[in-house]
């Protein structure tokens, strides 16, 4: 019984990490209907940027994350403004192929720069710290922080979306990009801004990715799959749904892993396909679209 609760609890906390992976993806899909196949690799890129800042420049981890977030914002902004904006349109093939090419480029660039070795971000004693919940249950501090951060990020993104002029513009462009221009909104800049914000979220995800487990240049696509599964399970266009999707995926994976380590990934994917069969639009689809 206790171990059953423990498995679910660990799964929920793991879902926080997947929610973080997915939040950026969900944001840019919501604003510009762009499906970014390089999202996972961009998260891994952010993790390597943090690593390089810590190891190369000797920055403390929190400062390195802030610097990396700024750098990734610029990367996202420029990438969207200069490259991706040119491919947006009714045909989804060009952006999909382009981001796939980008994914291959980033993976192999990282491989060339950092080798295929597994790396980890060091958070000192925090990594092993845990909080006892009584009854033999305990949760790690890092997983708990991951989950809390995922909730905080989603609250913050929702505040931006529903309380600011920028969020208003994001929603308007998402509804109707042509009419949005008549409001004086420059779609190109707004899309670039959305990608920049998504990359800041990706950097936060990268921090927890790197502290919780090892990473190497090849793991981006797998993170991308988890992120997509979370978004689709949750229902397109809802950030809380995305977190819920992450939790479903996380729980399925930890339950699978408790049966056999080999079953962790398979159980997650099967849960995703099962949700598709039952609720093809996910659990919390947005009314419009």
């Amino acid at each position: 019984m206790v171990s059953g609760i423990d498995i679910v609890l660990q799964g929920v906390l793991l879902g926080g990490l997947y929610g973080l992976f997915a939040a950026g993806l969900s944001l840019i899909f919501g604003v510009m209907r762009l499906v970014n196949l390089a999202h996972g690799d961009l998260i891994v890129l952010a993790a390597f940027v943090i690593l390089a800042l810590v190891n190369g420049l000797g920055l403390p981890l929190p400062l390195a994350v802030v610097v990396a977030a700024v750098a990734m914002f610029v990367v996202g902004y420029v990438l969207q403004y200069v490259v991706l904006n040119r491919t947006l349109g009714r045909d989804i093939l060009p952006p999909l192929l382009l981001t796939f090419g980008l994914s291959i480029f980033i993976q192999n660039g990282l491989l060339e720069a950092f080798t295929a070795d597994s790396r980890r971000l060091s958070a000192g004693d925090l990594e092993t710290a845990s909080i006892a919940l009584g009854g033999g249950l305990a949760v790690g501090v890092v997983p708990l922080m991951t989950f809390a951060t995922a909730v905080a990020v989603i609250v913050a993104l929702n505040q931006v979306f529903y309380r600011t002029a920028m969020g208003r513009a994001f929603r308007a462009v998402s509804d109707d990009p042509v009419t949005a221009q008549l409001m004086g909104i420059d779609n190109r800049r707004l899309f670039a801004l959305a990608m920049g914000i998504a990359m800041v979220v990706a950097t936060i995800a990268a921090l927890f990715l790197g502290v919780r487990a090892n990473f190497d240049p090849s793991i981006g696509p797998a993170r991308l799959i988890f992120a997509f599964e979370a978004v689709i399970i949750g229902g397109l266009g809802s950030l809380w749904g995305t977190l819920a999707g992450g939790i479903v995926l996380g729980v399925a994976q930890t339950v699978g892993a408790s049966i056999s380590p080999e079953w962790q990934l398979l159980a997650g994917h099967l849960a995703f396909l099962a949700v598709l069969l039952v609720r093809p639009r996910g659990f919390f689809p947005r009314a419009i679209d």
Partner: peptide, 27 residues
């Protein structure tokens, strides 16, 4: 130069007040 487009083209995700406010966000 402001335009009231044919078919109104209000933003469905925005409330009435937000639809008005967005008209002034950039000018």
């Amino acid at each position: 130069i402001a335009m009231t487009p044919e078919g109104r083209k209000l933003f469905p995700s925005l409330t009435v007040e937000e639809n008005l406010l967005i008209g002034a966000d950039h000018r």
